[in-house]
Amino acid sequence: MSRAARAGSAGARFAGWLLPGAVLAATLAAWEAFVALSGTPAYVLPAPSRVLRTLAADWPVLAPALGVTLRLTLAGFASAAAGGVLMGVALTRSRWAELAFSPYAVILQVTPLVAIAPILVIYAGVTATVYLSVFLVAFFPVLAATMAGLRAADPALSDLFRLYRATPAQRLFQLELPSAAPFIAAGVRTAGGLSLIGAVVAEFVAGAGGAGSGLAYRIVEASYRLNVPRLFASVLLICVAGLLIYAIVSVACAALVRRWRPQGG
């Protein structure tokens, strides 16, 4: 890449932060001005400053709720990532296992989580329902990506391993899993984005209140009580949490597969 092109991409990166930031600032300013000038009451539309004040004031209520939601999200996500990779390996080891189980993976994926969650609540209880819901939405992308990745190993490299009499374990750990790594990383990134959605949907459906309830329940509660500033504050919080999860997972995945570049050029 030429020096000019590199400078251009640095400029593009800078603009990539600056432009959305400018859009955000302009939108918030217009919103604030509109609310102030029109005299709209906070229970109809709270100004951004009011949302931030509410967030600070309600922090003792919202922070523990966010903690509950994040803990279950991370637990479900981690189990789904590990489970998806393990299941992907298992299903690609045996043609019979794949024939027996892959239809169920598809069925689980195409059935909307909102439809399954009420059933889960009956048998698993609220906390486990949230955990299981996260697992269900995050599992499939990792499984599908792992299976596709394990099969994507270069056939010539596969011949080379055969030529050198590689054992099945050597083939898995030194050829197939490394070949699958970029695929798995992409699947995990998708799963990371979905897992918070899974948690929020499950909390909405489970709808249990009390001290141990998650952030989504606070949103439902605020909505019933027409506590619109807290509603906005909760949504802001969950949005920031989602962004953080996405950013952390993306950075971690990118770091993991930094070496994985296609040959050529």
């Binding site: 080379l160 030529l163 050198y164 009499r165 790594a181 570049r261 296609p262 040959q263």
Partner: peptide, 17 residues
């Protein structure tokens, strides 16, 4: 294996990672 045969493919077919 040791002292056996070596094979060079049409492409270099190296482990990219």
């Amino acid at each position: 294996r040791e002292g056996g045969l070596g094979y060079v493919f049409q492409d270099a077919t190296l482990l990219p990672w």
